[in-house]
Design a protein around this nucleic acid. Structure first.
Lengths: 338, 338
DNA sequence: CTGAAAGCGCTTACAG
DNA sequence: CTGAAAGCGCTTACAG
């Protein structure tokens, strides 16, 4: 089966390789007869064009790279799924790569994807060592940022408004009487980590809440750090009455710790999660959370990339976030430290 | 940055393209001087070898394809993550593709991955139109099945024992006094769908339980079908007192429906889920489930593929499954139809 | 250890 | 509409 080349097809069809190639690529200048013969030969031989050779010559692969942060994070899984469907609609095939929240792994995949000569690249940048991302940006390969950005690198982007949902959440807790809110932050190396934290800080200031540095812990957007952070905050002498976690996986970790510690979410402690994940809807009490639209973000990223490939220079898109109030937040137990 | 070729590097280093190529690929027959010069030229020029050209000549890409069923299914996300890490350890880069539980999409990606000339392919086959999978198998490209298999296609595989965990689950429910167990099955097109269903049938027979055809509904391994199936079963005149769902996403859908219907899981109804997903651990009551080891399955698949690439013919691997009893299963309410 | 040459499998002006 | 020829960017026997 393998090893069948366009020469073989041409020979069997009784035409030249050039004609065979034209039929295969749908070039208009082909006769009905050639088309029939070539198509039959292709079928008989089980011919499968070698994409390497094709794109070596034509410099197009109809392939895009999608380099996400973490496949195991449902937010990115949803985003990847939506992006892929949108790409398919535009005739593009998505090669997915997983940085696993590691710059080194990101940079490695960046190399591979460039070497594979994808037609464009959608990237959730890790932050940290940006050398490869800078090279990407200056290489002229169509590329867009999604979810996160790198400040000094000027690429089209689709992100969420990391500020409004967070503001609503703090406001909501303040209204319920909470004065000490614990915050499990994402890493400062990620723009989302920084922006959500800044929004939290601004909102606590606005609402006149306590702003004790002890109330903030930094995680890495993965579950383990959310668990560790929650534990640290809940063991404080003067523990917070409410917690906000800055992404879905860290929220997951925080929930687990509360359960281990026998803390009743929604009664002993108010908890606000991040990302509208299925698990948070079936939990009891259902989780109050800050939602962003992963689907829309994924589809938009592909659309932007498509525009860049077409030579345009699309404006950055910022998608809304919003607070979904459910059952995990309630009135602060005033004066009582649980 | 782009457009720098090995010729440019060679010229700048004052050597021939052949020598430059040897340095780049770590060929032993190179002088220290050449090595230094070429490496410097590479750095100065920002040279990035064109993988297309390289593998067109060398017919190796150091790249493997991993074609999974559904990125949004946490089981496959975990599997993909583990496989990728294992591949990295073996010096292989994983290109992930998502069939989205669709044969058409599977077949499309199969084409692309073959065209990209991956060194090997790990596949969760969809079942249905197997033409492309057969072509893959007969093409001689190293390939292994993971999680699911196609009966008539002889490829190394790593699967889970779809029978023992299911048997334990039925036994467990029977012991609790349940006579009528509803079953939300996976599709008959998937080997996992068939095997788990067969195991369910065998176990109900063994335990002398009712075997009413009404008690079985077929889904597609996605959440919506789990919800629809659960609703159908729970609305039966003579409704089951326990439910088993055959994968994680369908379980998710079933849980949602119970909540909507105000059915108390673990009291009004016993529920056994499939796959050890984080969400099932933080649910209250925590879900009793049939667990399989996604990590081990992913890593094993890569190891098997690596052996196939090395020319070996590894035996099929079957991983254990086991029942994890938690709080969602309890004594049947005898005689009472809720 | 090194270089000139051929070739991997396609596509695409060019000429007819 | 068709074919001969050149070339995409590498690698690899071959000869030295």
């Amino acid at each position: 089966m393998r090893g069948v080349t366009i020469r073989d097809v041409a020979a069997r069809a009784g035409v030249s390789p050039a004609t065979a190639s034209r039929v295969l690529s749908g070039h208009p200048a082909t006769s009905v007869l050639s088309r029939e013969r070539v198509e039959q030969a292709v079928a008989e031989l089980g011919f499968r064009p070698n994409a390497q050779a094709r794109s070596l010559r034509s410099t197009r692969t109809s392939t895009i790279g999608l380099l996400i942060s973490d496949v195991r994070n449902p937010f990115f899984a949803d985003l990847a799924h939506a992006a892929e469907q949108q790409a398919l609609e535009l005739g593009l095939i998505t090669l997915l790569a997983n940085a696993n929240e590691s710059v080194e792994q990101q940079n490695r995949y960046l190399d591979v994807l460039l070497a594979q000569r994808v037609d464009g690249l959608i990237l959730v940048p890790q932050g940290g060592d940006n050398a490869n991302v800078e090279m990407l940006a200056s290489s002229g390969l169509p590329a867009v940022f999604v979810d996160r950005v790198i400040d000094d690198i000027d690429l089209p982007s689709v992100t969420a408004d990391n500020s409004s949902g967070m503001g609503e959440a703090v406001q909501h807790l303040a209204t319920l009487g909470h004065r000490r809110i614990g915050y499990i932050s994402g890493p400062r190396s990620a723009s989302t980590g920084r922006e959500r934290f800044a929004a939290f800080q601004a909102a606590t200031l606005d609402c006149g809440l306590e702003r004790d540095p002890e109330l903030v812990v930094f995680g890495d957007f993965q579950a383990g750090s959310g668990a560790a952070g929650a534990r640290q905050l809940l063991e404080l002498t003067n523990a917070p009455t409410a917690l906000i976690a800055a992404d879905g996986l860290m929220t997951m970790g925080a929930v687990r710790v509360c359960q281990e510690l026998g803390i009743r979410i929604g009664e002993d402690l108010s908890l606000v999660g991040y990302d509208d994940i299925d698990a948070f809807a079936i939990m009891r009490p259902a989780l109050t959370l800050i939602a962003q639209d992963a689907d829309e973000m994924g589809r938009t990223a592909v659309r932007l990339l498509h525009e860049v490939i077409a030579g345009q220079r699309p404006e950055p898109v910022v998608l809304p976030t919003r607070l979904m109030v459910r059952k995990s937040t309630g009135p602060a137990k005033t004066g009582v430290n649980r």
